[in-house]
């Protein structure tokens, strides 16, 4: 729109300008993408169809596309678990993050900045240490187990560590800021006059939330769920540290194939399958949820 109102000469000048300048501006980014995304992906792709030469760590290209199917069938349990745990963690994170972001955006007053810093604060500690800390939090000598046992919510024999529960809570906790911040950003942008208008039209608090606040914050919710779900589905640290052999996720399989079994083709094939599965899910989700307001 703005272009039209400009003197037409300038617009033509811009259109005619075939200089390489915009491409030069793009170059660092493209180079980065090429070096650290395209090349590794290409490398992974050609690894994924190789087979073992018979010696540990040596592989020959045999275009064995069955690697994809075989590896998927072998790891289907962990596959399903990855998506189940990531979905649960995303839902838990959403349930915690939305009220939190709402409170920070509308009810925190002077404390707003302090609360925002507190949301980000865990990032100052390494991911690994944060996860290991959960082992102690949920551990035999930690407060959570003691309280739940006193309240008879769990039996004295039940342990919370090394369980699916620990893995999912660990995932939800670790990715919580990724959920909170986008929701906060979209809530914060809501024009208070729209809320007032809703009140003027005799909507009560709940109706206002349902008809005005929630729809306007949806871009944040969509962004937050994506930012939580995608890394959670590929994560293997939480399952490794907080889980047991029956709660392993696909990331653990890929890690073991790469470093323990030294079976690079299977690991590469699984990485691709995971990437494709996430892409398909995300495409479907975005089609449903809409992305117009995401950016």
């Amino acid at each position: 729109m703005a272009v039209i109102s400009r003197p037409s000469g300038k617009v033509f000048a811009l259109k005619d300008n075939k200089s390489a300048f915009p491409y030069l501006l793009l170059a660092p980014g493209l180079l980065w993408l090429f070096m650290f995304f395209i090349l590794p992906i290409a490398n992974l792709a050609q690894m994924s169809t190789k087979t073992s030469s018979g010696e540990t760590g040596e592989f020959v290209q045999s275009y064995r596309f069955a690697n994809f199917f075989d590896s998927f069938m072998d790891a289907s349990g962990q596959f399903a678990r990855s998506f189940l745990y990531a979905t649960l963690a995303t839902l838990i994170a959403l349930a915690i993050a939305y009220p939190l972001a709402y409170a920070i955006a509308f009810k925190s007053g002077k404390l707003k900045n302090v609360l925002l810093v507190l949301v980000i604060a865990p990032f100052f500690v390494s991911f690994l240490l944060r996860t290991i800390a959960w082992k102690q939090i949920l551990g035999e000598e930690g407060a959570v187990t003691a309280i739940l046992r006193t309240l008879h919510i769990i039996s004295p024999q039940t342990t919370l560590t090394s369980s699916a529960f620990a893995v999912v809570t660990g995932l939800a906790y670790n990715f919580l800021p990724f959920m909170t911040l986008p929701i906060y950003a979209s809530l914060e942008r809501i024009d208070p006059r729209t809320l007032e208008a809703s009140g003027d039209l005799y909507a009560n608090g709940f109706t206002t939330f349902r008809k005005v606040t929630l729809p306007l914050s949806m871009p944040g919710v969509v962004a937050g769920t994506l930012l939580t779900f995608i890394p959670a589905a590929g994560d293997y640290i939480n399952a490794n540290i907080l889980g047991n052999p029956n709660t392993k996720m696909l990331g653990n399989v890929i890690e073991a194939r790469f470093f323990k079994i030294v079976d690079y083709p299977t690991a590469a094939a699984l990485s691709f399958t995971l990437m494709a599965a996430i892409l398909i899910l995300i495409t479907f989700y975005i089609r449903k949820a809409g992305t117009e307001e995401l950016v």
């Binding site: 073992s52 889980g243 047991n244 709660t247 399989v253 073991a256 030294v262």
Partner: peptide, 17 residues
């Protein structure tokens, strides 16, 4: 060959394969 086979079996018990 044993290394691959045995390690795969072991990782499978550990839930990693």
């Amino acid at each position: 060959a044993e290394e691959t086979k045995f390690q795969t079996a072991f990782q499978s018990v550990a839930g990693n394969a």
